[in-house]
């Protein structure tokens, strides 16, 4: 018999991955040019975690999904309008920078504080989900640190699957080298999962769910407390876009055989 799960998904916003990014220096350290103007999306790997959470919650009766987000309020709100239509969840918003240069250790601390403050959270039956890395920091550090702060030592990274088995144990697939997966069985919650892409498609938008969610999301956003996170003493020596414009030799209007020959020689070289 499986207890209802309390799935806490940590995920914030990142600039829509298609946008052009350019670093600028600010008094608080490096940032992105026009950061507040860039369209934002829910961090893609965290979003996979959220979709997986919704799927698990559907399978285990009585389960609940929380989304804990640290980000600037105004931006969070806009992103929530799209995510909120997917399935029911409760938002816990923490107001603060969502930029990639923010210190992971401090983000973990702030998230742990927010999770510990969720009323009625059943920590014994908690699954802590998030992206195995974020598209902004891309470090793969926050979730592990958060797990430590919450005292959870059953942790998994690069997760593509997490299944609740009939006996209540969890079967988890983690990505490892060579396109392979490491398979683990954990007796049950609490665990931490840093998600890779998972296997689920993005759920369709359901306006009715959106309406329901927004009624709780708006107050959560209004209540969002500012978090103490910063860049924490880092000395930035250089922050730049990769300089690697190459001189591209364009081969055209030559017989296909010649091109093929050139490629073959290059491969064999």
């Amino acid at each position: 018999m499986t207890q209802p799960l309390h799935i806490v998904v940590c995920g914030s916003i990142v600039p829509d991955p298609l946008q052009t990014l350019e670093p600028v220096s600010t008094p608080a350290g490096p940032g992105l040019k026009n950061e507040m103007m860039l369209p934002a999306v829910l961090d893609p790997w965290a979003a996979c975690g959220l979709f997986e959470a919704a799927n698990l919650a559907k399978q285990v009766a009585g389960s609940k999904v929380y989304l804990v987000s640290l980000g600037p309020k105004a931006k969070l709100q806009q992103v929530m309008m799209t995510v909120a239509q997917k399935f029911p969840f409760e938002l816990v918003a923490v107001d603060g920078p969502a930029g990639g240069f923010t210190e992971a250790a401090q983000v973990a601390e702030a998230l742990a504080g927010a999770i510990n403050a969720i009323p009625g959270l059943d920590k014994a039956n908690m699954l802590v989900f998030g992206g195995w890395a974020s598209a902004s920091r891309a470090a793969g550090a926050t979730m592990q640190m958060l797990g430590e702060k919450l005292g959870i030592t059953d942790q998994f990274q690069g997760v593509d699957e997490c299944k609740v088995q009939p006996d209540g144990s969890l079967r988890i697939l983690e990505r490892i080298e060579g396109g392979r997966h490491q398979v683990s069985i954990c007796q049950g919650p609490p665990i931490v999962c840093g998600w890779a892409t998972g296997n689920l498609p993005e759920p369709p938008n359901n306006p009715q769910v959106g309406m329901m969610n927004m009624r709780a999301i708006m107050p959560a956003l209004q209540k969002a407390k500012p978090a103490q996170v910063a860049q924490d003493g880092v000395e930035w020596v250089t922050v730049q876009l990769p300089q690697q414009r190459r001189d591209t030799r364009i081969v055209k209007d030559v017989p296909i055989e010649e091109m093929a020959q050139e490629i073959v020689e290059w491969i064999k070289k």
Binding site: A74, Q77, Q78, M81, T82, Q85, N205, P207, G210, M211, M214, M218, Q222
Partner: peptide
């Protein structure tokens, strides 16, 4: 952003 902040109306993109 101001409208959504007012809580009086909902705007659903996408």
């Amino acid at each position: 952003a101001q409208l959504m902040g007012s809580g009086m109306v909902q705007i659903w993109p996408g």
